[in-house]
Structures are given as C-alpha cells and as structure tokens.
Nucleic acid binder design. Sequence first.
DNA 1: CGGCGTTGTTGCGCCAGAGCAAACTTTGGC
DNA 2: GCCAAAGTTTGCTCTGGCGCAACAACGCCG
Lengths: 240, 240
Amino acid sequence: MATLDPSLVAHLPLFSGFGADQLGEILREARSLRLAKNNAVFEQGEDAHSFFVLLHGHVRASKTTPAGEQVVVRYVAPGETFGVATAIGLQRYPATATAVDDSVALAWPSTAWPRLVEKFPALAVNTLQTVGNRLQESHTRVVEMSTQQVEQRIAHALLRLAKQSGRKVEHGVEIDFPISRQDIAQMTGTTLHTVSRTLSGWEQRGLIESGRQRIVLREPHKLLVLAEETPGESTSPTRP
Amino acid sequence: MATLDPSLVAHLPLFSGFGADQLGEILREARSLRLAKNNAVFEQGEDAHSFFVLLHGHVRASKTTPAGEQVVVRYVAPGETFGVATAIGLQRYPATATAVDDSVALAWPSTAWPRLVEKFPALAVNTLQTVGNRLQESHTRVVEMSTQQVEQRIAHALLRLAKQSGRKVEHGVEIDFPISRQDIAQMTGTTLHTVSRTLSGWEQRGLIESGRQRIVLREPHKLLVLAEETPGESTSPTRP
DNA sequence: CGGCGTTGTTGCGCCAGAGCAAACTTTGGC
DNA sequence: GCCAAAGTTTGCTCTGGCGCAACAACGCCG
C-alpha cells in the first residue's frame, strides 16, 4: 500500500483540527483504492465493512426500493466522506455507491472507527457536522419536493451540482462528471421523459447546452431566477 | 431551578454510557422548561441559543419556505433531542419548533455544547447516531415522495406516528397528540383536501376512526398492506 | 347557551406530468 | 468501420390529485 502524504488531506473537514502526527496515525490504517467507472464501491444491504474519503472522481449514492425503483441520494465530490454507516450506528450500508467516473478513495475498515474515535474524539465531532449538513440538504430536498414544480426542482438540482462539481468552460459551467437524464429524474422525483422535455426547452432558450451525459449551464443566473419563480408568476407577465 | 433526578434520563440515547456522576455534571447546566400548547420553543432563523431534550409532551419541527409554505420536518417524542443546531455547526435554527401539547423539556445553552463535548466526547458520538438516524428517516421520506402515491405516503406517515407516539386504546392505536389534516398534508407533501378525502375513505372502510385533530388506527396491519401496495395492484383484483 | 373561529368534508373542473410508444443519435466494442 | 447498446427526443393519451368553492361540524369563549 502506498503511503499517502498527509498534507494532501489535512484540509478536509473530516481532519480539521488534526496535527501531522495524528493525521499520520489515522492515515496509516487506510488503504487507497481505485474505483473503475460504473463499478459499485458497495451495495445497499451489504455488511458495512469500510468507510471512505473520496480523493478523485465522483461517486453516486442511490437507494433501491423493494419495487426496484431507484432514487439518487447524492453525488459525492472529492474530499467528502461516504459509507460512514458504522459511525451512525448501522450494520449495513443503506445505499449503493457507484463510481460515475474513474475515481480514487481512501478506505478504512469499519472496525477501526470505534478505536479511532476513542483516541481522536474530534473525528466524531467533525463527522457530526458533515452528517448534519447532509441532513440539512435532505430536508431541503423534502421541502422542494413538497412545494415546488418539477421544472423548479430540476433547476435547483442542476445549480447544486454545478456549485458542488462545476467546471468553468468557455460557454458557462459544466457539470464535471457524466450524468444522464435518468439520473436527474431520480434526483428530482420525476421521469426521464419530463427531464428530457424540460432540458430541451431550456436548450432552445439558450439557458443550457447539453449532450449525452453532459450538461453545461450557460446562464446560471437565469436558471436561478427560474428556480425561485412561484408557479403563479411568469417572465412575460400575463395581461389581465 | 429544580434539580432533576439523573435516573429519569439516564436511559436516553443521548446519555448512553454515562455514569451517575457525569450525568449529574451535565444535568447541572440544564434548566427545565414548560412549553405551553401551541407556543413556539424557537423560530426558524433565530439565533440558536439552546439545545433541548424533550421530557413530556410533543413538539413539531417545521420549515417555512420563502413563499410562506410550511413543511413539517418531524414530530419530537419524549426522550428525543431537538434544536441541536450548534452541534451540527449551524448558527441559527433551521426550523421552527412548536409544542403541540403542553410539554416539558430540558434546555442547555448552546455555549455549553463545546465545553461538554470536550469533556464528554461520548456526547458527540451519541448525537452522531441520533442525527444519523434522522438522516435515514429523511432519506426514506425522499424515496417515498419520489416513488409512491399520496395514499401510500399518508399511510406510511400515520404508521410511523403510531409507532413513535401511539397509545393503545380500546379500538386500536391512537396518535397521542393533536394532529390536523393540514399537519399530515405538510408531512406528506400534499394538500389538506386530499388528506381529508383519503382519511374519509379509510374511515368508511373501517381502517381508522378519526375526529377533530384525532386519529385512531383500527387496523394497522391492513393499513400497512395498503402502504406497501404497488400502484398497479389492488385488493379486489380487476377482471380482465 | 348562542355565536364565531377553527377544522373538516365534499363536489367539480382542470392540468402538470406520468405512462406508453416509437424513432433517432451517439458511442464504444469488436 | 459496422453493429449493438445505451441514451435521448418527442408525440399522444390519460389521470391523480390540486385548486377552488361552499358547506358542515365541532368546541371554545363570552
């Protein structure tokens, strides 16, 4: 196993407040691991053997219902932790993690967690903040699904993805990993058909530019306006 | 301030693993507090001055959108923590907490949190589990809203409420606090009209019994079957 | 005990968006 | 360079459940 330079991960939220020695001690227990595109890192229901920090690439976490429908829970960006089932008291992974691009992650055996936390309580404190943030995001999503139209939800989803994993390109901001209409549908609680229609509409209006598993936001600001719009109002006001 | 008997709260998840002395030390910083029915404990956006453990009664946590729509995030049952904004790194409360019944809670000043965690790291570990559970619940809700019909979502919501805060009564299980059609609508992402129609239907079928802000599940099992049902299938099979 | 605010019920029309079907396009494998 | 698979687009139909409206029942307060 290649030893990792502590300075590369020292700034991550999980390790905030740690010195080089402590960091070294923690990293000594990790192994780094390549994740080939479209391969599962772990599967929902599987025994939670490890937890991870993503170094490069992108990972999709999704849940499958008993009826076989899939819902995308989130996308993991570099620097984020995932698979922390053990830390929150779960025996098994509650979702499936799939690399959407060739990726690299650090992995610790779950058995190391209690020991590490015992020695470095700040790990629990940092993880608490991370999980808390995710809870906020999840609540935001519930609120959106309860109160907004599909078009607005899609707009919000794209804006969040762009913020989290956007790459500046010539004509705007590109979402920096392959993402299909189907994926967006599963993030927003709609169907790929409706997503396709919506994106087509936006493309005609010049708000975005898109292709196969590729989306560029050309006018993020206009998209934001659209996302905030109340069902009633419209850009071109209706004459009474 | 009345000193609380540590043995009354020793079994709570937040305090699991603590001895009587430590518990005493933690409790010494708390004050207990009566919450009158329909009064806000704290408001969304307000400075997160305290965090709480509910001792008696029930508290509703809800979020309000910029457009003024409300969504019920959860109901807090006795023994649960709420208002832990500080622990997850928030300056302000992300939701409003309202007592739905006359209630009693313990309150700690948020400033005490870092100090308590420093001295008793297990607090962070326990809170991490709690917040993790809530994250699971929130994800469950997202999955339900993405994949299920309104009727099934309402059924699931009632079953969860009954499990969390159900009281055995003569004809079934009663939800042990006042809850309106509107509240259920805000939990399930629908309108009070649809909730009313759905509950009326169930009442006619003898599945529930309900009145003003009062719901009794008479046939929890049948409700569960209904909740798991796929849109396609039906109790009385259609003849082709 | 009567009036009034709050909560719940129900009928009706409409539409956003799901479901279905089919064709088209891109891309990677061989 | 060709073919199969995966992803996308688009038209049409149908419907769950929302929005509106009016009313009814309950319980609180003076």
